[in-house]
Computed example of a mutant assay.
Amino acid sequence: MKIQHPTAQTGFTLIELMITIGLFSILLMLGSSLTRTWVDRSQVNSALTTFKTAVTQAKASALRNSNNQLMSNSSVSVCLDSTTNTLNIIRTAFNSTDVCDVPSSPSASSNTLLRTFPLSKDIFIKQGTYNFQCMSFNSAGVLILVSGSGCSSDLATAFKVGKNDETADIYIL
């Protein structure tokens, strides 16, 4: 009489499956944190480029001086609207000191919104320890101090653009 041996089972044991799932979970967590860092870095680089572009276009608009401002007055401003997280280029009305105000219905005596640059959510722009609000340029394209506006007038201090743990510094000259 022949004795039959049970056939060998094929497949994975419960321990092997648990180890595989554990290793896969660890790799997935590492990958997701690296992806978040990569996305944040990409958004910071994009915001940095946007900020440079906004300042350059504001200077160019100020040099055109289409609002006939005196050299001592603001011609064009770059303002950060923190509620919509956008950078706005605003042509300042003649002899206006409220350089970032854009009324809902424009009139001949009000500031004019020239261009809007959206920024990614949670992007911040700081100069030193202060949050960036605005900077104004006169008709020669030179940064000026507008009293009572909260605008930056110091280009010696770097601007810091960032999101979460990712930051980049930029000097505007």
Rank of each mutant, 00 (worst) to 15 (best):
I19V: 14
N111K: 05
H5I: 06
K160W: 01
N138L: 12
G148D: 09
Y130C: 07
G31C: 03
V161C: 02
M71W: 11
V78G: 04
L28D: 04
I170H: 01
S120G: 11
D165K: 13
N111Q: 06
V44M: 03
F159K: 01
D40T: 03
L114R: 03
M29I: 04
A156D: 11
S136A: 14
R91I: 00
L27K: 06
L27N: 07
S109T: 15
N65P: 02
S136T: 07
S46L: 10
V39I: 15
S153R: 02
S75I: 05
G150W: 07
K59P: 00
I21F: 15
K59Q: 12
S61A: 13
R115K: 15
N68Y: 13
F94W: 12
T167Y: 03
R115I: 01
S105T: 14
S61R: 01
N68C: 10
Q57D: 07
T13Q: 14
E16S: 12
K160S: 11
A108M: 11
G148M: 08
D165Q: 12
M18A: 14
F117L: 02
T92E: 03
A93F: 01
I123R: 00
D101R: 13
G31H: 09
T157M: 02
V102H: 13
T20K: 08
S77A: 08
T116L: 06
Y171V: 08
L155H: 04
I125W: 02
T116P: 04
K126T: 11
A58H: 06
N95D: 12
N138V: 02
A156S: 14
L80G: 00
G128Y: 07
T7D: 13
A156F: 12
Y171W: 11
T86V: 14
T86W: 09
I125A: 05
S149F: 05
S153T: 00
S152R: 02
S77M: 01
S25G: 15
S120Y: 06
Q69C: 08
S61D: 09
S74A: 14
P103Y: 06
L17V: 15
M1E: 06
A47K: 06
F51D: 04
N45Q: 15
A158I: 05
D122E: 14
L173H: 14
I19L: 12
Q69A: 09
